[in-house]
Amino acid sequence: MEFAQASAKKASLEEVKEAMKKDERCIILKRFSRNKLAVYGLMILFFLAVIAILAPVIKPAGPYFLDVSNRLASPGNGHLLGTDTFGRDLLARILYGTRISLEIGASVSLLSLVFGLIIGLYASYYKFLDQILMRICDGISAIPAILLAIAFMAVLGSSTKNVILSLSMVYIPTVARIARSQALSIMELTYIEAMRALGASPTRIIWRHIAPNILSPVIVQTSFVFAKAIITEAALSFLGVGVPVPTPSLGNILYEAKTVIYKAWWMVVYPGGVTALSILGLNMLGDGLRDALDQHSR
């Protein structure tokens, strides 16, 4: 084929390709938007993320500013949601706390996704790795998440970074397990055999053919891990072994509320409410994604 002819042909096909890609994006968006659950979940999360990011704008004073004369003030009078035992504005604490909790949740789910995927994929492809890796994962999963997280924190020491590390180690097996089971069923399929017949290397098969096809259920699982991470972090902090005070997190605000629960309901209701809202949003998103993505794969 003449070089000029070929280039022209390629150019016209490129246009076709762009048009198709646009079409496909529209279809995915449409399908996603039809799923009410997913949309509302996303909206809730988006709202939380926005206020978390805008925390310095909304409350430039920050979460550590003490208004000592107004300790445990009920909502109103310059403190929209009241103050805590040290006189810190609760709204500010909650905004920054949400930020920390969301950061932790996002980091944990990202780490779980990446390492869970790697472990699951290689365990499914290589039998000997499977034995080793899955036994480790089984061992980790056998211990309740909170207890395990507490144990890790005890070993690593108290800091936000260590919370992320501990929770990641706790939840990687969850993602690894689903990645592995999905990968195992994909590996039986004819197109994987076709790749082997073509001479493709295991790396290519794993990353270019198995991974994209298991991404949907793995991502859904990751969104649930996000939610679990937030809850577990809240639980850890509530028990005093999570994010170290005075850094606010949704959990350790509740930790501080423990002693004043009858005197200051706002210290329980508001952070609790925000925690519940974020979990709700994440679960809705996860459910919705599962429904939306499942239809797409065929």
Binding site: L189, T190, Y191, E193, A194, M195, A197, L198, H209, P212, N213, S297, R298
Partner: peptide, 15 residues
Amino acid sequence: QIVFQDPFLSLDPKQ
């Protein structure tokens, strides 16, 4: 090389 029986599963749906 090989041509498989199943036209639906012999091609990677994501490619």
